[in-house]
Design a protein around this nucleic acid. Structure first.
Lengths: 150, 150
DNA sequence: CAAGAAGCTTGGATTAGTCAAGTATCAGAG
DNA sequence: CTCTGATACTTGACTAATCCAAGCTTCTTG
């Protein structure tokens, strides 16, 4: 049963990615870059490189690479973090904001999930939230994971 | 709302992948190879290279590359398809079967989905199945997609 | 059989990703 | 204040993963 669910989730993800392929081409980005752009939520404080690495579950040097591309494309800029000159944060540019919006719009309208009614999506949300909720910390503290909050 | 769901699904996928990272290392495979192995369902007829490409949503030449690795690792073998010598099918070896089983076991036990009760998983299954069900073919036939059945 | 289509592989190029080492900055101990 | 060690990012070298265009073999059809 869980196996079938994983297959379904994976198929879902695949269908969503396939559905927005033309948008990626249009924005001149690849999937990993889209992932990075997706994480740059304008409503949240600009993340540090390190935080991006955690969100994307990749090596910090990979973030350097991806950030370079996003800068070349004019979608993001690096800025020194206030108070710690070691740290750099990634800011969306206006173009980046627009690109991300197109990405999010395409994904949300074309994903198979969009075929569900509001009520169904609500139930789905409840189930997934419960699954992702702080879990198995059997005895002790909730234990800061440093990654999930992305 | 749909946006939040996509984030959740993505986070789910990420958590599952992160959870089985040690198994991948142990099996000496990477994520794309694990994806390929996952698709080689022993209960289904051995898929052709082309079919694998559709399932994995990648170029046929990429399947050549992945199949090479799986053969090198002793997890799969190519065999001529009966009746069409152009076509090659990918068979799991005994070792491949075992490796795939470890992969599936790890994924199904460690995915956040496993935290849900049977009833919840059942509801989740119903929702996802409905979302993925043959969709927008507004007027006509269900229309063979040639990819989804993976 | 000839022409074209279908399926896989190869070659070349680019993108992603890892790990190890390097550079700059910060935080504490003297 | 300065040395020491940790932290944050980047660079370099290397491998993996992709794609596209070309090539070869094998069907299919006229």
């Amino acid at each position: 049963m869980t196996y079938q669910l994983l297959r379904l989730v994976h198929a879902m993800d695949g269908a969503t990615n396939a559905g927005i392929h033309d948008v990626l081409t249009d924005l001149k980005i690849t999937r990993p870059l889209a992932d990075a752009l997706w994480q740059l939520d304008p409503a949240a404080p600009a993340p540090s490189m390190r935080r991006m690495a955690a969100k994307l579950r990749c090596d910090p040097s990979t973030v350097t690479f991806l950030a370079d591309r996003l800068e070349q494309l004019g979608y993001a800029t690096r800025a020194a973090a206030p108070g710690d000159r070691r740290t750099k944060v990634l800011h969306l540019t206006a173009a980046g904001h627009a690109a991300r919006q197109r990405l999010v719009d395409a994904a949300t309208t074309r994903t198979p999930i969009a075929r569900l009614t509001d009520a169904e999506q609500s139930r789905l949300h409840a189930l997934l939230t419960r699954a992702m909720a702080a879990p198995a910390a059997a005895d002790g503290q909730p234990e800061r994971t440093s990654e999930d909050p992305g």
